[in-house]
Simulated assay, not measured.
Amino acid sequence: MPVTLMVLAAAYGAAAGLLIPRPAHRMAVEPEEEWRAACPRGHAITGVARGWLGPGRCPDCGAYGPGVLPTATVTALVCAALAAATGARPELAVWLVMAPVAVLLTAVDWRVRRLPDELTLPLAAVAAGLLGLVGWLTGEGGVWRRALLGGLVLGAFYLLLYVINPAGIGEGDVKLALALGVALGWYGWPAVVTGGVAGVLIGALYGGGLILFGRSGRKSVMPLGPFMIIGAFGGLLLGGAAAA
């Protein structure tokens, strides 16, 4: 059963990953700019949901933002790993819903150093709502309330970092922390601490490496969202494995 579940999760992740390049290209703009309505070569983006959903490659020239193969591969591996760690537990469905959005956020933040509210805030709401449904179906209402508190605690932690160092932490990072904290909180406070601290440490190590090798200066802006997501991903794997 675990192998079958991993294969199904990987297939789902690959299919979802194929759709990521289009919205990643559209959302990778500066805060004052509107979402892109054309591919890099000027062909209009149309289709389902005003062009948000559809093939990850422009039908006219094949160009968008990130490549289809990398996004499909990464999303497939993430979903398979979550399935392997969590097993056939009901919260796996929530992680599989969140995973493609997390990959999309990573792609956007890496390209333009920002996390759109249109993704971060709905992700937190979806995580809270779906985990609430899981808690109601399984009779684990207390676990759900702890998950909500986890979101508030991790969000407050990043808000404190933002107040202390607004040049290094963005408002989008604080909003993303709400969603990640809700997910991690489902597995308890050790998962919240592990996932939250891991994200900060991995980001700090990456930034330190860039400075050490002369790739950036101390005041250079780097994306923190991808490292927050990687840290939370590790926390979910450990939490899921412990709960399985």
Rank of each mutant, 00 (worst) to 15 (best):
L121Y: 14
L121G: 13
L121S: 14
P122H: 10
P122R: 14
P122W: 09
A124K: 10
A124R: 06
V126H: 11
V126W: 03
A127S: 02
A127K: 00
A128T: 01
G129I: 15
G129Q: 15
L130G: 11
L131A: 01
L131E: 00
L131Q: 02
L131S: 01
G132K: 01
G132M: 00
L133P: 01
L133W: 13
V134N: 02
V134A: 01
V134F: 08
G135V: 00
W136P: 01
W136K: 09
L137I: 15
L137P: 08
G139F: 06
G139P: 05
G139R: 07
E140A: 14
E140N: 13
G141V: 04
G142R: 00
V143N: 12
W144R: 00
W144H: 02
R146C: 15
R146K: 14
R146W: 14
A147I: 08
A147M: 03
A147Q: 06
A147G: 06
L148C: 05
L149F: 13
L149Y: 11
L149T: 10
L149D: 10
L149E: 11
G150E: 06
G151E: 06
L152I: 01
L152H: 04
L154E: 05
L154P: 03
G155E: 03
A156T: 07
A156H: 06
F157D: 06
F157G: 11
F157S: 09
Y158D: 04
Y158V: 07
L160S: 12
L161N: 13
L161W: 14
L161E: 12
V163L: 10
I164M: 14
G168N: 08
G168P: 07
I169V: 15
E171Y: 15
D173G: 05
V174A: 03
V174N: 00
V174L: 02
K175P: 04
K175I: 09
K175L: 11
L176V: 09
L176E: 04
L178Q: 05
L180D: 05
A183S: 13
A183W: 01
L184F: 02
L184N: 00
L184D: 00
G185V: 00
Y187L: 01
V192R: 00
V192S: 02
T194Q: 10
G195F: 02
G196F: 03
G196D: 01
A198E: 08
G199A: 04
V200I: 10
L201P: 10
G203C: 08
A204L: 11
A204I: 10
L205V: 07
L205S: 01
Y206G: 06
Y206P: 07
G207I: 05
G207T: 07
G208L: 05
G209H: 03
L210H: 11
L210C: 14
I211C: 09
I211G: 08
I211W: 07
L212D: 11
L212K: 04
L212F: 07
F213A: 03
G214D: 09
G217A: 02
G217K: 02
G217F: 03
K219R: 13
K219Y: 12
S220T: 09
V221L: 11
M222C: 15
